[in-house]
Design a binder for these strands. Sequence first.
RNA 1: GCUGCUAUAGCUCAGUCGGUAGAGCACGUCAUUGGUAAUGACGAGGUCAUCGGUCCGAAUCCGAUUAGCAGCUCCA
Length: 645
Amino acid sequence: MFKVSFPEKTVEFEAPLSVFDAARAAELVTRAHVAADVDGTTVGMTHVLTADCAVKLHTTADEKGKHVFNHTAAHILAQAVKRLYPTAKLTIGPAIESGFYYDFDSEIPFTPEVLAALEGEMKKIVKENLLIERFELPREEARKLMEEKGEPYKVQLIDELPEGAVISFYRQGEFTDLCAGPHLFSTGAVKAVKLTQCTGAYWKGDQNNKMLQRVYGVAFASKDELKAHLEALEEAKKRDHNKIGRELEYFTTVESIGQGLPILLPKGARTVQILQRWIEDEEQKRGYLLTKTPLMAKRDLYRISGHWDHYRDGMFILGDAEDETKECFALRPMTCPFQYQVFLNKKRSYRELPMRLGETSTLFRNEDSGEMHGLIRVRQFTISEGHLVLRPEQLEEEFRGCLELAKYVLDTVGMLENCSFRFSQWDPARAGIKYEGTAEQWEHAQSVMGTILDNLGVKYEIGIDEAAFYGPKLDIQYKNVFGKEDTIVTIQIDMLLAEKFGMEYVDSDGQMKTPYIIHRTSLGCYERTLAYLIERYAGALPTWMAPEQVRILPIGDEHIDYAYDVKKQLAAKGVRVEVDDRNETIGKKIRNTQLEKVPYMLVIGDNEMNAGTVAVRSRKEGDKGAVAVDAFLSDLLLEIEEKRR
RNA sequence: GCUGCUAUAGCUCAGUCGGUAGAGCACGUCAUUGGUAAUGACGAGGUCAUCGGUCCGAAUCCGAUUAGCAGCUCCA
């Protein structure tokens, strides 16, 4: 006799039985249930219960159920591949947030035609509704089974399993795969599946290993869900900054200029300028000193900072890096060593600390050719850079100031809601290779940072081997409409570089001390931020940062003079305003203005209008009828001043 | 850098078996007008990404390069 407690009720059983049977006895199970947590461990519905336990059922509507569902879909894909291409070798195939993938080692490239064929075979497997059975084997037998099946990668995975690990397999029809599970009861539940793409992926994620073929797919319990998913994807594509940013003329690229070197067109340049002025002013209010430092330096500087050893591949080098008899320069990939020279300019007192240095800093990084993407990943970018030189006891206070500033600016531009925090730490295994400094220095910096983050109540994930070469980071991650994450802002603690550069201050006790340094950004890099703003607002930027805020549309020629008169009144107050005096119908002018996502249009010559008024159409609120020019202007200025979204 | 895909007018795309280039929108001119998501007529626009090869002949077939996309690896 044992008790199975579901959240809804507790049921007693005499003999062992499956989760499914237990749930059925409790009258809780439906067709949608695909998995369960038993005492916190996720299992399949066929898992046998033998003792007291707590059971929580999952459907495909929740994350864990969906995960199991997608994992089974990955197995169906693998089965289809083995049926159509028996020589392909299995590697791994997990469920991911957006669906699933499976990596194969195959001589035959998986072209779109091949994917279509695989999709067809998957549908057959679903229709066959094969039972999915779990079984376990001791290590030697497991190895033997996978060797017989001709799966060298699986053999390797078995060999790498730790001593005493349970080695489980899942079998569906003729197909058997090494897998921890859990899985669905049978293949029949995967009603709708689509293979979305095939790409390359390194075995075990290491670029020194063989490149495998990764097939991505999505799977759903119904065709309607698949349809809804594909439609949502289409909607996301309409927000893609790389498409609408070009269409709306924020930026462009030119073949002869090269990859990762976008041209900011007048609209893009204007918005960046607005953000930049705002950030520089905001930082000034918060006690930052503005600097302007060179974009390049001799290799000697990078030798001191460590960039020459740790970052040389990422730099554009001017001259022969190997020839020590000649001068060799490099464009700067980071601002740190330059801005430190401001501190080093003269002997410093503890009274001058914290010294907050800010710079709108253009950087150059020689990214690999496959990395560039729109405005998100470029080779030249301008960042709201800053370094704070501190006495050690000021670290927490100043760190908090940096975090508050970053949160304030991200909130103001409307991006904070899609942000998460990552505490990026070093990997001791790469000490001396990727990372400078001793284990003690790293442990110290990380524990200080961890304490600060906990004191500030920051909820973060830990990223191992994500640190900078000189210290741990708090990265603010932005999740875009496709679910992809990038770092938008970073705040880093550096206990190494000050010493390398011989930075010191005279403390109150008359002793020379080495300061701590915080590296930080406030709005991140302007190009990337602009990209995410375009995406976030689907190209319709809030009025305060819109490159064109008002467009005046005279209906007929006789209205043009008045239109320019109104423009003059608005422009005198700093409003970014244009007149569309083309010889076009008013309908066409309105349509163009809407397509270009200008926040306000003023139709001149409308019936309702009197002298001194304009017919206002707001992008957000639609037609507002005739409004006095003065009233419109003062409302607009208020909106811009308050940065209302 | 790696794997796969792509490149025709400013944009979205046609272009069949290899025979010297098409549409819509945008743009310009004229006419017209309070056409409130598209007033009409006319016009201009392309060394089919670049270079090379095959062929009597290449937008089309082959190769290389460049650029773009998705993913991997790397990163703000």
